[in-house]
Write a protein that binds this DNA or RNA. Structure first.
Lengths: 333, 333
DNA sequence: CGGCGGTAGTAAAACGTTCTATTAGCGGAG
DNA sequence: CTCCGCTAATAGAACGTTTTACTACCGCCG
């Protein structure tokens, strides 16, 4: 347990601790000869800077927090990959928090992030309570919303138009001839689920149908397992001609259950997912879906956050809204 | 940017900073009346403890590092979910590092983790260089290997028997009547890929075949896209009767490419994956695979790590080796 | 009534950095 | 030869906690 400090390095190189600090942080400020001496001492002693001490004194860390709703969902995994890539390029560490849809857990995670004095937080909020995020801001922690429109003007946000997505999805189903549509969704407290439903209704209205006819099946989570359960509910009554699912995991579950029940897709029921995760194209019946620029979402959000942190005076807050893209496959032929 | 410190709380509650610290860390040591007063002050001022200061003084943090090879792979995502669950239950934060198979990136990540003075590190090493991990240990950072056997006795490790897995997979293919087998793998520098190949050869030997006949196609990454490319190489020559893939992502890619090339699975070629990710069961032709206790891998590794950190004197190092389980589906009917 | 043991709380020193003055050294302009 | 300006390096305070040693107080026993 050899804890080598900056002092040891200084002694070994015959300089003062301040000089070592300068070598570490502003190498330009120190004469080449001494710099080399210090660098030699550093590698010789195996010194590694104590991040906490540095954070304490400097007042800020090189760490950001990422809070997502479900790390098991490939959508968020891909977002996380984008975040991690940018962060790592710029020398930031990422602390991962998985809220699993529970606001309590999200709160706990945000508390941990506050204690770590992260530079900023990327979050896909699971509820609609901006107060907690405002509290972070009051503590000087920048917040960028991911896959969620901004709560307020002086804040960055990167989102995808979910109303448009829901509308395009259901419009596509209706164009294929379906007259009755079911919407299999996660908890309607989740904004994405709610807005995709609004879009779905708008599409029905535009097609001259009664939006009230949209049959909504609400699952408690957005997983394949939950999709299977939801499908059971569908097959219990008269089958709709089309099913729109709030994400691909639900859709894959619904697909599996329908096929097992002897329902043909798309002949008996047309099926649409959302997110266009990699596996949508590879499933039993390849799945039509709404593609979102997932990896880009993570990258851009992180770039905005780090710009806000590193250049607070020149930073301009941005609200970015992507448009989702329809990908038609077998499940809606 | 109201930075409330323990001193402010102390002043507000009319006590000394030391007492506030006691309320935070050993509430039993302080009289109920004062404790309440302090707690009131804490919530009134919105105080949140400065983790770095605490880490600096106490000498250790409540943070662990997790370094995986590919966060985009559902296998690792599920491991991460297990890790996150246990860590969060015990009040630890998790710093995520994605090595993307590059030892350089892994090194960078480990350096970041060292700087953060994490309590311990969970790692699926991408190479076979134990030296870097030993360096961590010298700095007092515990290391637990995940999905990898132990490098040394005084270390915990949680692994799955990859040789046995490879053997079982290929034995299954041979039992279904295949005589020629191809192995589509990621880089053979990855231990898992190598050992599964050894298992595959052992199975051929046991069946009276020449292990040298195993046709090995080495992809540069272990993704579906890489699988598609590898399949192109397969379809170029005479088709093998069976293909064993080092993981399910490769297998899904191979499957997609084979079907597109008009090759029937399993009639023309039997196909096996590895990991049994959720999507294996849902794919076009449902995929036979080797199931591993993935979530448990993450959970148990984290429990071992935190036990090692929190009870260093009573902790007994463990090498846990799980056995994978064959799951037969359509692709090997 | 003096001393003893226990509890509740305090003061002050650490932890390893960064940062702000400050000094030392030196070349060149006046 | 003095003074200015500049670079290179230093000393020492500060960041917000935790911890150790200490004091103050109270009740109780002898």
């Amino acid at each position: 347990m050899a804890m080598v400090s900056i002092k040891d390095v200084a002694a070994h190189a015959g300089v003062s601790p301040g000089t070592v600090s300068n070598v570490l942080n502003r190498p330009g400020k120190v004469a080449p000869a001494t710099r080399e001496r210090v660098e030699a001492a550093i590698s010789e002693l195996g010194f590694v800077r104590h991040g906490s001490a540095s954070t304490l004194r400097a007042g800020h860390s090189r760490t950001i927090g990422l809070s997502v709703i479900d790390i098991g969902n490939p959508f968020f995994t891909e977002v996380a990959a984008g975040v991690e890539d940018v962060a790592s390029e710029l020398g930031y560490a990422v602390i991962l928090g998985n809220s699993a849809g529970s606001p309590d857990k999200e709160d706990r995670n945000l508390r941990v992030l506050s204690e770590h004095r992260v530079r900023g937080v990327l979050i896909t909020p699971s509820g609609e309570d901006p107060a907690r995020l405002d509290r972070l801001r009051e503590h000087g922690i920048s917040v960028v919303l991911v896959d969620h429109p901004a709560h307020r003007p002086d804040q960055c946000a990167v989102a995808v138009d979910d109303v448009a997505g829901g509308r395009a999805a259901v419009a596509h189903l209706l164009a294929k001839g379906a007259r009755s549509v079911a919407y299999v969704t996660g908890p309607l407290t989740i904004r994405q689920c709610m807005e995709r439903r609004e879009g779905a209704k708008a599409a029905m209205l535009a097609a001259g149908l009664d939006p009230g006819e949209l049959r909504v099946v609400e699952a408690t989570t957005m997983t394949a397992r939950a999709g299977e359960k939801a499908a059971a509910e569908l097959t219990a009554g008269p089958l709709p001609e089309a099913v729109f699912c709030a994400n691909d995991l639900l859709a894959l579950g619904v697909l599996r259950a329908l096929l097992r029940a002897g329902v043909r897709v798309p002949e008996d029921v047309a099926l649409m997912g959302y997110d266009d995760i990699d596996f949508a194209a590879a499933s039993t019946v390849s799945l039509s879906s709404m593609r979102q620029p997932t990896y880009q979402l993570g990258r851009i959000a992180t770039e905005l956050l780090l710009d806000e942190c590193d250049n607070p005076e020149t930073h301009a807050h941005q609200h970015i809204m992507f448009q989702p893209e329809l990908v038609a496959r077998e499940s809606t032929q």
